[in-house]
């Protein structure tokens, strides 16, 4: 039983890996970007847990800027993914322009909030 389940798990990871290897490079770049952003957010949270959250607005803006960046990048990834049938008529350039605009707004707000 245990062996079969571990074998299943191995199969699963192999399948996952092979499926992921097939994704286009630009999507992989976006994925890296997302992982980086989430990782940065995690570092900040750990730092907050260790040191304390005194300038709370700085902590908040730091974490939320990372989370926001990650979320927006995920949105971009959803939109430029060719396998997504819902966004057939949305040009990737348009999607990128929206992404830049949204990021601009996000970081303007964060600069304001950083105090």
């Amino acid at each position: 039983m245990a062996r079969s389940s571990s074998k299943d798990a191995q199969d699963l990871f192999r399948a996952l890996w092979s499926a992921y290897a097939a994704t286009p490079t630009n999507l992989k770049i976006i994925d890296l970007y997302v992982i980086f952003a989430v990782f940065t957010a995690a570092i900040q949270v750990v730092y907050m847990a260790l040191v304390g959250s005194f300038p709370f607005n700085s902590f908040l803006s730091g974490v939320l800027s990372c989370v926001g960046t990650a979320v927006l990048a995920v949105c971009l990834r959803i939109q430029v993914n060719k396998e997504n049938k819902e966004f057939k008529d949305l040009a990737p350039e348009r999607a990128f322009a929206d992404f830049v605009l949204c990021n601009l707004v996000l970081h303007l707000v964060i600069m304001n909030f950083l105090g």
């Binding site: 926001g68 959803i78 949204c102 707004v105 996000l106 707000v109």
Partner: peptide
């Protein structure tokens, strides 16, 4: 995925923008 695009950015951006209003703040 449209639901995700409609909701996730709204929460992040909305929370940040809301905390800019002094009466709401943290």
């Amino acid at each position: 995925s449209r639901l995700y695009i409609a909701y996730a950015p709204l929460v992040v951006l909305g929370t940040l923008l809301a905390s800019l209003v002094p009466v709401v703040g943290f």
